[in-house]
Design a protein around this nucleic acid. Structure first.
Lengths: 340, 340
DNA sequence: CACCGCATCCAAAGCGTTTTGGATAGCTCT
DNA sequence: AGAGCTATCCAAAACGCTTTGGATGCGGTG
């Protein structure tokens, strides 16, 4: 059932039917009722492909996953982030179009998406410090919103980010308030902008109480359980081990807990841990009393905001790019305690 | 730059240019060279929307996420699965189109995707036993491949699945061989087909050595760290606690480990755990000696196979639906040992 | 030499919408 | 009564491609 067929059955022109369904004013109320009734009866839906060609919009928002090599980690927050994105874009009739590319072919992929007209806008994730994709997107001229920010980029662009610096400042200060003076950091890859910001928040908190940040108790790397375990195990075996740790994800924290237990210590008593909690649905830290003391901000919610923002930008003629800074919430769990 | 523009610059008709780029034979080799050169120079790419309309194909494969409620878990294997899917579909020029819907609106969504011509085929995930979506897809007439199977459905359909029954039979038998006689099960939601199959594999292994399956040491529920912890903690506190556990995911196993440690026991010595390992990239169990003894099958690889299979099915005229049963591999880690 | 087959190209007709630019009729005003 | 609106509808163009159904010219054949 297509427009022509439907309109001929109704004895109307395609124009009128299209307008009736599109909600345009220049159609008689009675006719509109007839049309909508018939459309429902015949289960007519405008063909997306034709609609896309006629309107010049694809009703797709794009997200490209780029891998350095085939085995590279899928981002653990990916699922929840996509969930949030999809949730809101679906509500506006957009669907999310995923493509995958190797990192060298990333630029070509973005240009392709643009010249093919495959997407109306793009969501960028995990910016590195001074990420070149932002300039690229400006050059290409496709609406985009960044999940996170890239330091050192002056040109305005739309983003949604968590106040990572502040979150880690608070996490660290929380441990300091409990009497901890030697606090280790287990961070994500610090070429990522969020990780760099977290580190600076951590250092700021230390300096505020005249503690000298110590490079030997800072680690950065992929945020796997393994790495959390390795980093903490290694730091605990030092001569002057930390009594507290600030770690960049729940997964790392789980590894940290394992290392602490293996060292014959008790987390929350002998060693404290504060985690960054993305509020991932498959790694809940939302018990009545959370297992981990954490600074929490929902990545799913960020996805929702980003989708809304991007769609607004697509439909807007020309406004200054939106930006939104989310604050992480501190939740106190059982993984922290006063220094012994 | 579009086809008309490009062809007029070349002094050729759109037909010839289209054919030259499309690789059709009826075009002079020299002309083809000129055309491809010019296309590259002007960075011409056929507009996907127009191409879609003209060919009647969208070059999208669809995947719909349906939630029972807004807070429902995002499936933890989602990220890796999507990764595998995207990886292979991108290679064939397809992109993955995600939409989200509430479970009541699921049927309407599938019908919508069909009538709008938004996708060329669909990937179904997490079938429940006797899943009604399969009959629905047949009715709608859209190519589809299922990740997993649905018992009790006789009509042929394409699927890729792991031999879950066998995997759990082997996992259980492995513990039995180590001398364990009281073996607990921590399963996923048994309305899911895979979980039902795992349970039957577990029970079969017990019966093969004349052990009577005991309902009191079987648990089923969402596969979170929390639930793994709760289930194992509770079973360990029983009068006649299990000495070994078979659990349905690494996340559950991490929770199990926590419960074991809290009980003052040592995993791999006092209590053994065999996990099902989806080989998720953010929860690696691939150390030199894996932490968890596990039956492992890569969900990412399943995604790849599904994408290939679906694209084959889209382009095929009419063949019997493919199906592929993957076997999980048993890897021995440190979480198991002979019964004490 | 007339005819045929082949290689190479093109004009035009879709594909199913939206949108532009009227057309028509009825009504109000002056 | 004629001009000017307004409400309602429609024909046709446009979106940018693919594909059908020829055209054209050339070399080889009988």
């Amino acid at each position: 059932m297509n427009l022509k067929e439907l309109s001929s059955r109704l004895g109307l022109s395609p124009t009128t039917v299209s307008r009736a369904l599109g909600g345009y004013p220049e159609v008689n109320a009675e006719t509109r009722a007839r049309v909508t009734e018939a459309a429902a009866r015949y289960n007519y839906r405008p063909n997306k492909r034709a609609q896309a060609l006629a309107t010049g919009k694809s009703f797709n928002i794009g997200h490209v996953l780029s891998t350095r090599n085939k085995d590279e980690l899928v981002n653990p927050i990916f699922g929840d982030f996509i969930g949030g994105l999809t949730e809101r874009s679906a509500a506006s009739g957009y669907s999310l179009s995923l493509t995958l590319t190797e990192v060298d072919a990333e630029e070509a992929m973005f240009r392709k998406l643009k010249s093919e007209g495959a997407v109306d806008g793009i969501v960028l994730q995990s910016p590195r410090t001074n990420d070149n994709r932002i300039a690229l997107m400006h050059d290409i001229g496709l609406p985009f919103v960044v999940h996170g920010r890239a330091s050192d980029i002056e040109a305005p662009y739309a983003w949604v980010d968590v106040n990572n610096r502040r979150a880690f400042e608070r996490a660290t200060a929380f441990l300091i308030d409990l009497g901890h003076r030697r606090i280790g950091l287990v961070n994500g890859d610090e070429r990522m902008d969020f990780a760099a910001r977290r580190r600076s928040g951590y250092q700021d908190a230390l300096r505020q109480v005249d503690l000298q940040p110590d490079e030997t108790i800072m680690r950065a790397g992929p945020m796997t359980e393994d790495n959390g375990h390795a980093a903490v195990a290694q730091m605990l075996s030092m001569d002057n081990p930390p009594t507290g740790f600030v770690v960049s994800s729940i997964t790392l924290a789980i590894g940290a807990r394992r290392a602490i237990q293996e060292a014959g210590l008790v987390m929350g008593r002998d060693v404290s841990v504060v985690a960054y909690d993305d509020d991932l649905s498959y790694l809940s830290n939302r018990q009545d009393v959370p297992v981990f003391t954490a600074v929490r901000s929902s990545v799913r919610e960020a996805g929702q905001k980003i989708a809304d923002m991007l769609i607004r930008q697509i439909n807007a003629t020309s406004t200054a790019p939106d930006r939104e800074l989310l604050e992480a919430e501190l939740v106190v769990g059982t993984s922290t305690g006063p220094v012994v």
